Amino acid sequence: MARQAAGMTTPARTVQITLDCPDPHALALFWAAALGYQLEPPPPGHASWEDALEAFGVPPERRNDRSAVVDPAGQGPRLFFQRSEGPVPSGRRVHLDVRAAPGLLDEERMAALEAECRRLQALGARLVERHEPSPPLERGHLVLSDPAGHVFCLD
């Protein structure tokens, strides 16, 4: 399905809502209970997130850096929680992640994000930051602001 925006067509995108917080797992449990959501299941081939994070080589002290909850019916947005200690420099605690490169990795992922960034810049967005991929958890993303200054990520 394509959408028309400022004379351009693009596939419909999904979004996730991202919340910065000091304890991602605890906040994920709260929102799962509050919304009737569930913790996001571990990747295929892993019985638990602990098993997956161990296999990915994530050190124990970094295993609560992020968490997510999903709507079991698949209709509501994914809520993503990322560790942030103390005040956030930009003052933002909640932002949208525009899922522009699902399933892509490394250079292919960043190229897709850059292409979408150029399209959005033509519509009035501004590139704020570029975050390079940093395995095992970081896949790389771009931070932009919309024409009114609201920050969002291309993920």
Rank of each mutant, 00 (worst) to 15 (best):
V94Q: 10
H131D: 06
V58M: 00
E85M: 14
G76A: 13
L113C: 03
P89G: 11
P87C: 15
G124E: 04
P59I: 12
V98R: 01
L105T: 14
R109V: 01
F56C: 07
A55H: 10
S84K: 13
E114T: 01
P59Y: 12
G74Y: 07
V98N: 01
R93D: 08
P72Y: 09
E129Q: 15
R92D: 09
F81M: 07
L39W: 02
P102H: 09
E132N: 12
R93P: 00
D71R: 02
A115V: 07
E40D: 14
A115E: 12
R93C: 07
A55P: 08
D106I: 01
S84H: 11
V128C: 03
L79S: 00
G57V: 04
E50N: 13
R99H: 10
P44D: 10
P133R: 08
L53H: 04
L96Y: 04
A52Q: 05
V58Y: 00
P89H: 06
G91Q: 01
R130P: 00
V58L: 02
A111S: 09
Q75N: 14
R66G: 15
P87K: 11
C117E: 02
E50C: 10
P60G: 05
S48P: 14
E116R: 03
H95V: 05
G103W: 01
D106W: 04
E61H: 09
A101Q: 00
R93E: 09
D65F: 08
D65G: 11
S48N: 12
H95F: 05
V128N: 05
R92H: 11
D71W: 05
E85Q: 15
D71H: 05
D106N: 08
R92E: 13
E61C: 08
D97Y: 02
V70G: 05
H46P: 05
A115G: 11
R63S: 04
E54M: 14
A112F: 00
N64T: 09
V70W: 14
V128W: 03
E61D: 13
D71Y: 04
Q75F: 13
P44C: 11
R109M: 08
A100K: 00
R66D: 13
R93Q: 13
P133Y: 08
C117Y: 03
E108K: 12
R118I: 13
A112N: 02
E40C: 13
V58R: 01
W49R: 06
R66E: 09
V94N: 06
S84M: 13
A52H: 02
F81A: 05
Q75R: 14
H95K: 08
A125S: 10
G45H: 13
G86E: 05
Q121I: 13
G91T: 03
